[in-house]
């Protein structure tokens, strides 16, 4: 199998205004690869929600996107507080985001459910007090 194309992004945790820049960039990169608009939208929305989550909850992090022949893998890693109850976090409408974030249009408890909705596979590894790694996969075939 040929080597995957790798894209790496640092997500700035201090700036809500710039949150989403990595997702905008990956969207452009994937367009250049000639992938279908449906695939590009699913990858970029999942990554955008993840990016927003990292800014809201974890003070930023890193995002790595690898494009393989058969799938695209998105890995989001942060050193935030971790998720104490994943089942609860996966419920639509459940959120621990502060009110200030809600007034910015996020924190509706849709982030993780949306990430799951738009990807074919999602794995959450989290340790309370240490951080969270989310690995998502979107199949190309």
């Amino acid at each position: 199998m040929s080597e995957p194309l790798i894209f790496h992004f640092d997500v700035d945790g201090d700036n809500f205004t710039s949150a989403g820049q990595a997702s905008v960039t990956i969207k452009k990169d994937l367009r250049r690869l000639g992938l279908s608009s449906e695939i590009i939208r699913r990858v970029s929305i999942a990554m955008y929600e993840g990016e927003i989550n990292m800014v809201i909850h974890a003070g930023g992090g890193v995002a790595d996107v690898r494009v393989f022949e058969e799938y695209i893998e998105i890995v989001l890693t942060d050193r935030g507080p971790g998720i104490s109850n994943i089942d609860q976090a996966m419920q639509e409408g459940f959120s621990t985001a502060p009110d200030a974030i809600r007034s910015l249009g996020f924190g509706a408890g849709m982030g993780l459910p949306n990430m799951k909705r738009y990807t074919d596979d999602m794995k959450i590894e989290t340790v309370v007090g240490e951080g969270t790694t989310i690995t998502m996969r979107v199949n190309l075939t």
Binding site: G20, Y48, L104, G105, F106, G107, G109, M110, P113, N114
Partner: peptide, 24 residues
């Protein structure tokens, strides 16, 4: 006004009506 609710929808060519004003 909730962007995550908007992101739960998928379809081409849509219009977004909102009272929220920020870059997101």
């Amino acid at each position: 006004d909730m962007m995550s609710d908007v992101l739960a929808f998928v379809k081409d060519q849509a219009v977004l009506l909102t009272g929220l004003v920020n870059s997101q």
